Computed example of a mutant assay.
Amino acid sequence: MTDHQNPLRRLSLRNPVHFLALGLGSGLISPAPGTWGSLAGLVIGALLLSCLGQNLFLILTALCFVLGCYLCQKTADDMGVHDHGAIVWDEFVGIFLVLSALPELSPLWLALGFILFRLFDITKPYPIRYFDRKLRSGFGIMIDDLLAACFSIVPIVILRLLISA
């Protein structure tokens, strides 16, 4: 692929929209940029959650989702590719939501949340795959990861209930 055919060549990490959409650059790590973006989001999200507390972190996550609809659409437009793998802001927001459901930020819970999120984000069970294919917008880029986070939260909540019983 020549330089002018590579959509990443149309981006600049000096552009704050691109920088954020590419997960502070984590989406440029290969292979598996979504996994690297999720890992970066996990670390940043855990730090933010521990500093802000649950309520402020959830507000921040909601704001990041709204902002992400713009960031992801603008970056996809600039690349000329819908939902390019390097766009990982959606992974950040998805893992943020998963973090908010964890009972504690211990290594075991963090690993479980990360693995569940990646499992559902990669496999995209129904209806995640449907929305991923049908919605061709920044919202479409964001919503499949939000749904993967919701799917991830279900077993976390069940496990929390079983442990506390």
Rank of each mutant, 00 (worst) to 15 (best):
S100A: 15
L159G: 10
R133I: 06
L119F: 15
W109I: 07
Y126K: 14
R136M: 10
I122G: 07
A111C: 13
P125A: 09
D121N: 08
I156F: 03
G138C: 07
D145V: 07
I128C: 02
Y126T: 12
V98C: 03
L162Q: 14
K134T: 13
D144A: 08
P107V: 09
L147N: 06
F117D: 00
G113S: 09
C150H: 09
V157Y: 13
I158K: 10
L161E: 13
L162T: 13
M142P: 01
P125H: 08
F151K: 02
F114M: 08
V98G: 01
R160F: 14
V157Q: 15
K134H: 10
L161K: 14
G113T: 03
Y126H: 14
L162D: 12
I153M: 10
V157G: 09
I141Y: 00
D121G: 05
D121A: 05
L162N: 13
D144M: 10
T123N: 12
L147Q: 04
L102C: 04
G140S: 09
R160M: 15
V157T: 14
I153Q: 01
P127T: 04
T123V: 15
W109T: 06
R133L: 12
I158Y: 12
W109Y: 12
C150E: 12
I128N: 00
A149G: 10
L146W: 07
F131M: 09
L116V: 02
V98M: 05
L162I: 14
R118P: 02
L99I: 08
P107N: 12
